[in-house]
Write a protein that binds this DNA or RNA. Structure first.
Length: 612
RNA sequence: GCGCCUGUAGCUCAGUGGAUAGAGCAUCAGCCUCCGGAGCUGAGGGCCACAGGUUCAAAUCCUGUCAGGCGCACCA
């Protein structure tokens, strides 16, 4: 089952109905149409709806309603799946699912656990997700954090639907920016050593961290008894600064809960000769030409609006040259799909990269670029600047620590040392993923630290913790019933006979289809919306219905599962009596919700705490 | 000037060509003797920027206009 029992079963029923209609000659159907099931906007319109009759109107040359009636008639021959089939103008077929089928969703979730929602949609195709890839010239900031959240979630999402996914960080360690950083560090070193007339590079990095690095460079030189400011000084600066910054980036990403399968160095492409080899390949097929003393890639032959320089007049290679080599390398590693997460300001770069992919003989669809928009860091509505080369610099780590420790102050006291960062990372990741990647995002520190529902992550995590809490209480109160309360025991799902039960089960059934749709669209943010909705339904159910009886120990002696354990006056008025069987069914329904929330949060890289 | 992205409730944003366009915040009115109130219930709030077009059906697709953002390097 790839999109869940309910959709699979209804789809095959619908397919059977169409085939019957064709066999009997009621419909012509030269080819079977692709079947799509929509969730109607209103629940009174049924559980699922299909527009197939309207789509067939043209090819069948008949009125949509007429076609719908024919299909509906055939569907009525399957009363085991569908309880009600309704044709509504202009030609919708609204379907109400048989309850037993809904209950199979719950059994499926219990059986599959953390695998629930997984599918084989990707057929094991190999995908490389490259993301963050920040220049190793300074600490990560909020923009990188958003790219990290999107990339990490996308990688996990694709893995869940059956792709063979690797993640990669491309280290831009060969170009001008790293050179500038080195010069900046060297200049700070000279200042620290009281050299006269130190000239700071014009476009140099002015952040305070550069001076910190310079101090470490000097300390390290002293420790190794190197002569300070010797001829090779800049090389020494580069090596030390590079290692320090890359280490910090790795540490920051780890704190953010991210792992990369591979770290790929741009310099290695020059050292291995991959850059010249790639250009030779392009040259051999006439995709390169010389002009004005420079070497150009004829990207216009593949849809770019301009040809691009790969080797400058002064003989140096441009960034594009190594990027061409990098993508050639990725393709040569045999990936079926390359996904790059880029800052939206690089969007003008897409056509030339697609050109390169095509020049190497691959369809341009093999490369997909997900653009991530700028994050505006705010503090109580005021914009906080984030320029790396200028003065003030707010790093990702600072934000995680600030948000995390603020949350900790009002959260339940599980204050392990790393948890402030983890809490901050949970909040940041979820907030980053509450918007489409290519829409602007204001990340307001003041808001992120409030205990309000503007922090949707806590709303969702709370739903998870709430179920965990119920299960703990149930364990204490009903130690004898633990088997019945878990998937190991028998359960009578038919006791879940309220509309509110279905309101909770329906989204659980949709979860696998949601994952597939999000993965295909490369849009992990759909999952955050789904989880907020699911959590809301759980909270609402919780307030409307009792799961466990009030703690009245003397009333719990009944061993007869049909005899009410307790008759809460209000519940009795609603006609609800809590029997042990009903407690079991509801607890297990809640546990299913908990499983799906946990699975979903895991994809987003957000923790699902048992208590908060 | 050319290209890409975005214009949806007061604000921040969802919305696979389908039915009467949704959520959170904010505003207003309610809910703790109770399984965790980080919660729940309800109300008000819309010419989906504008104008054409395609379609049985458009917030969604196409064209144009306007507004905002970002690109347009022999930088990365």
């Amino acid at each position: 089952m790839s999109v869940g029992v309910v959709r699979e079963t209804v789809l095959s029923t619908l397919r059977a109905a169409l085939e019957e209609a064709r066999a009997t000659g009621d419909l012509r159907l030269p080819t079977l149409p692709t079947l799509v099931l929509d969730v109607p906007r209103k629940e009174t319109w049924g559980d699922l709806a299909t527009t197939v009759a309207m789509n067939l109107a043209a090819s069948e040359q008949r009125a949509p309603c007429e076609i719908a009636e024919i299909i509906a008639g055939r569907l009525r021959g399957h009363p085991d799946v569908l309880e009600r089939i309704e044709v509504v103008p202009p030609g919708f077929i609204n379907l109400t699912i048989k309850r037993d089928l809904w209950f199979r969703v719950l059994s499926e979730i219990e059986a599959q656990g953390e695998r629930y929602g997984c599918s084989d949609l990707g057929l094991g195709k190999r995908v490389l997700v490259e993301f963050v890839s920040a220049n190793p010239t300074g600490p990560l900031h909020m923009g990188h954090g958003r790219g990290a959240a999107v990339g990490g979630a996308l990688a996990k999402l694709l893995r869940h639907v059956g792709y063979d996914v690797s993640t990669e960080y491309y280290i831009n360690d060969a170009g001008r920016q790293v050179r500038l950083l080195t010069e900046s560090v060297a200049a700070r070193c000279r200042e620290l050593l009281n050299q006269p007339d130190v000239q700071f590079p014009e476009d140099g990095y002015r952040g305070a961290y550069v001076r910190e690095i310079a101090k470490k460079v000097i300390d390290k030189a002293k420790a190794e008894n190197l002569e300070l400011l010797l001829v090779q000084w800049e090389g020494f600066c580069k090596a030390v600064a590079y290692n320090i910054i890359l280490d910090e980036i790795r540490t920051d990403l780890k704190a953010f809960g991210l792992h990369f399968d591979n770290w790929f160095s741009e310099s290695s492409l020059f050292e291995s000769g991959a850059v010249t080899k790639s250009l030779d390949t392009l040259k051999a097929q006439g995709a390169l030409f010389e002009q004005d003393g420079a070497q150009w890639f004829r990207s216009t032959a593949f849809g770019d609006d301009k040809d691009r320089v790969v080797r400058k007049q002064d003989g140096e290679y441009t960034y594009l040259a190594s990027d061409i080599a990098y993508h050639r390398d990725k393709l040569a590693r045999g990936y079926d799909l390359l996904i790059n997460i880029w800052g939206a300001d690089h969007h003008g770069y897409i056509p030339r990269m697609e050109a390169a992919v095509q020049a190497f003989g691959h369809p341009k669809e093999r490369l997909k670029i997900v653009l991530v928009q700028i994050v505006n860091l705010m503090r109580g509505g005021q914009r906080v600047t984030m320029s790396k080369r200028g003065g003030e610099l707010i790093t990702l780590r600072e934000v995680l620590e600030e948000v995390g420790s603020a949350m900790q102050r009002w959260s339940y006291p599980i204050t392990r040392k790393e948890s402030a960062e983890r809490i901050g990372a949970d909040a940041a990741k979820f907030i980053f993923l509450t918007r489409r990647a290519d829409s602007h995002l204001d990340f307001d520190l003041a808001v992120a630290m409030q205990k309000s529902a503007e922090n949707p992550v806590y709303y969702v995590q709370y739903a998870h913790a709430r179920v965990a809490s119920l299960l703990r209480v149930a364990e204490v109160r009903f130690p004898e019933e633990q088997r019945r309360f878990s998937e190991a025991g028998e359960v009578d799902w038919t006791l879940l006979n309220l509309p509110d039960d279905l309101d909770l089960i329906r989204p659980l059934a949709e979860y696998p289809a949601l994952l597939e749709a999000s993965a295909q669209a490369l849009e992990p943010h759909r999952l955050t919306y789904y989880l907020q909705d699911l959590a809301a339904r759980l909270h609402a159910y919780y307030y409307k219905h009792r799961i466990l009886p009030p703690a009245l120990e003397h009333e719990l002696e009944s061993q007869d599962p049909l005899k009410p354990v307790v008759q809460d006056s209000e519940q009795v008025r609603k006609g609800e009596m809590l029997t042990l069987d009903l407690i079991a069914a509801r607890l297990r329904l809640f546990r299913c919700v908990k499983t799906v929330i946990r699975n979903g949060l895991d994809i987003l890289g957000v923790s699902a705490p048992e208590r908060m």
